[in-house]
Design a protein around this nucleic acid. Sequence first.
DNA 1: TTCCATTGGAGAGTGGCACTATCTAAGAGC
DNA 2: GCTCTTAGATAGTGCCACTCTCCAATGGAA
Lengths: 213, 213
Amino acid sequence: MRLAELSERSGVPTATIKYYLRERLLPPGERITATQAEYGEEHLRRLRLVRSLIQVGRMPVATAREVLAAAEDESLSQNTRMGAAVWALPHGPEPDEDDPHAARAREQADTVLRRMGWSYGQELGDTSPAYRMLVAAIASLDRLGYPHDTEHLLVHARLAGELAVADLDLVETYDTPPEQVEAVVALTVLYEPVLLSLRRLAQTEESGRRFKE
Amino acid sequence: MRLAELSERSGVPTATIKYYLRERLLPPGERITATQAEYGEEHLRRLRLVRSLIQVGRMPVATAREVLAAAEDESLSQNTRMGAAVWALPHGPEPDEDDPHAARAREQADTVLRRMGWSYGQELGDTSPAYRMLVAAIASLDRLGYPHDTEHLLVHARLAGELAVADLDLVETYDTPPEQVEAVVALTVLYEPVLLSLRRLAQTEESGRRFKE
DNA sequence: TTCCATTGGAGAGTGGCACTATCTAAGAGC
DNA sequence: GCTCTTAGATAGTGCCACTCTCCAATGGAA
């Protein structure tokens, strides 16, 4: 398959594919001659994953590159690779080091992780983007004066845990390790809007129930 | 309070506040003289809300304006206003009308709403951004060949329902209707990163448990 | 074999968007 | 009276995901 066909089958313009190749989001095709390269099914899969990360996950190109690099780093174990890929996924601004809100948020995040018994989160701590994202989010709530008591956070954590179980069940339906790593990244990103939209619909529903006329 | 103080207390540069005023994200201050205006606590609150929507919620300025307009539309009932504000919250690309993936996704979304007994979502249908976001998300899963059976979606919907109950409990701790409307918007947006980060942490944890070495 | 469309590659250009800098006239405040 | 700040308008700026334009080398049809 050459570039034009890859473009047609993926729906991504050739100019954009060239851009992704240049940015190393897509491995180069196998060079057939000096001016032609051949792409395979794995390029198509990868291209779709890249589009998911960038368009659905609204991820900057540079970050997508890091996530993909972690996902295919042969020097890591299967598990580490999955973890690395998922927690390289980012969102929103980083917490400010010397902000009192962030300091308090950090403590509260630690409490939540401890009470959930989530040891990875605790060990990885600040190195994990997901952890920093949690801290930044709690700090925002604090800064804006919105409630964020630990019990309420634990409700979210417990539900997140249930989601993770369901998601990993899906991942296990994939056979080969590389497919599983890709699947966990893709499913994490692609189910985020599903979850958020359902939550908003549920809120509309619930507020209708409570505040009806 | 004048512009300089509003800027200092909110941490937002004066130039940016002027920009928000120009874009009607912030109501103008009360004109004292030809060249001075006075801002109150409600301007500060509103400014913080705007920042939440734009920076945490990554919302385009134009969309934030619509959400805020819905939130303060006096012609709507309290409940409608809350609903309007929450479902004006957007995320990601819109579904394509004549895409077979989107058509199938639409059916599946309807099934989920029906099985959950969420009548608002059904009635509002395509007019609701949250609904369109759900359809677009399911369509993406379908297009990329990832699993999205109804049972799995219902797991997410059920958990989203539980979250909504907890969130609305928080909203009810606010006394006045305008505060409640603002709170539901702010909490919806500000808890999204909390939820997403916890989900990612939970996934790392769960994948560690399942795929350990 | 000839000739034209296509390819991979590289560099520059574009458009959108959230700011941000500059400027000006009219007060405010000492 | 004299300096400093303010509101308001206009024009940039910086970032970033593309997208356009070229070019030389080829592949494939006639």
